[in-house]
Design a binder for these strands. Structure first.
Lengths: 186, 186
DNA sequence: CTTGACAAACCGTCCAGACGGTATCTTTAT
DNA sequence: ATAAAGATACCGTCTGGACGGTTTGTCAAG
């Protein structure tokens, strides 16, 4: 125990571990449980070690946000690759990813975190930027009111999953997905 | 300064003031700024005074939640009163209220708060209960997949307002409202 | 004179971050 | 090839402040 000092150094591994632990903590005990002490301890690192990787708490949350967005982007890109209709392609990918999120193993882990992130003004701004960027990138194919509507609905469903406020059976779920995808085409 | 002691006693007024201040603080500086010290001070009351009205912090947040839901309910009821088509009536009211929320003077004040409330497990559960209750109450008229979809979209728009992530001009806004209301009818 | 509506001082805990150190890794000079 | 010279990756401790909550006291109204 005493000499975690002497173990092999693996900065990238530790960094990743810290992010994972932070995500897990927020999931299991709410964002309030994400303290430097708790995260570092659960990651098997001292607080000093944590602060070496992330100079302050906001940096840690930023790191979490980066990871989150990166996964989201990857999932969207993947979904877009299997779709050869131009019109509304981004919207359909967005739909797919949002609706699938609650099922995905890791998705579950990120959700509670997400809402907390969005309460933080700084991260809220970063998210706004993400949206603006995508809106510009896919203006040609996905700026119609119908696409917008579909994406809003996806957000609503995502929110419902997050809050566990509605119990959606797989059947209505896929019905909604169908309906929304249709919207993205017309 | 010293003699806030001697001012006229007006418990109901003070209680209200505390709630308003808490809402305003959360709006302007995030939920992190809602501390007993900050709220009481900004409301011109001592911390002891605050804790007289709300025995602990959770009670304060609960009070906030009650207020929020009460206003929401009143607005919905009002909107339903002016609608004499049975089918989807609740959904249309829900739409109207959600989409109008960002315009309303006080609505603005409650939004940031809301998301923070939903991060709190206890309040999240209370919200879940609200949803379940309404779902049961309006099962006859508003349980179709289309109504569900419309409400999800409303949630998405509400979320976008909250995060200021999309800039919706009044035109598309009313277009979406129209479209969604139509959905609630078919 | 009792009760409700506050005030003011205080307490224990938690937490972000600073700091000074130590061990391991990498590069460079020889 | 190797040893010195940093650079990087950590550890352990400390501190100052914030925060939720308690306690005790004070005033006013009924």
């Amino acid at each position: 125990m005493s000499n975690a000092y002497h173990r092999k150094k693996q900065p990238e591994r530790v960094r990743q571990q810290l992010l994972e632990v932070a995500a897990r903590l927020s999931l299991e005990q709410g964002i309030g449980a994400v303290t430097l002490d708790a995260v570092s301890q659960a990651a098997g690192v001292s607080k000093g070690g944590l602060l070496h990787h992330f100079p302050n708490k906001l940096a840690l949350l930023d790191g979490l946000f980066d990871e989150l967005v990166a996964r989201f982007d990857r999932a969207i890109e993947e979904a877009m690759a299997g779709d050869n209709v131009e019109r509304g392609r981004f919207t359909r990918a967005y739909l797919t990813v949002c609706l699938a999120l609650e099922a995905k193993a890791d998705g579950k882990g990120w959700q509670v975190l997400t809402i907390a992130l969005l309460a933080e003004p700084h991260l809220k701004a970063r998210w706004r930027e993400w949206v603006a960027q995508r809106a510009a990138e896919f203006a040609e194919t996905d700026s119609s009111a119908n696409c917008l509507l579909a994406r809003f609905a996806a957000d609503g469903i995502w929110l419902a999953d997050l809050l566990e406020s509605h119990e959606l059976d797989a059947q209505t779920r896929s019905f909604l997905l169908q309906k929304l995808k249709a919207l993205s085409l017309q």
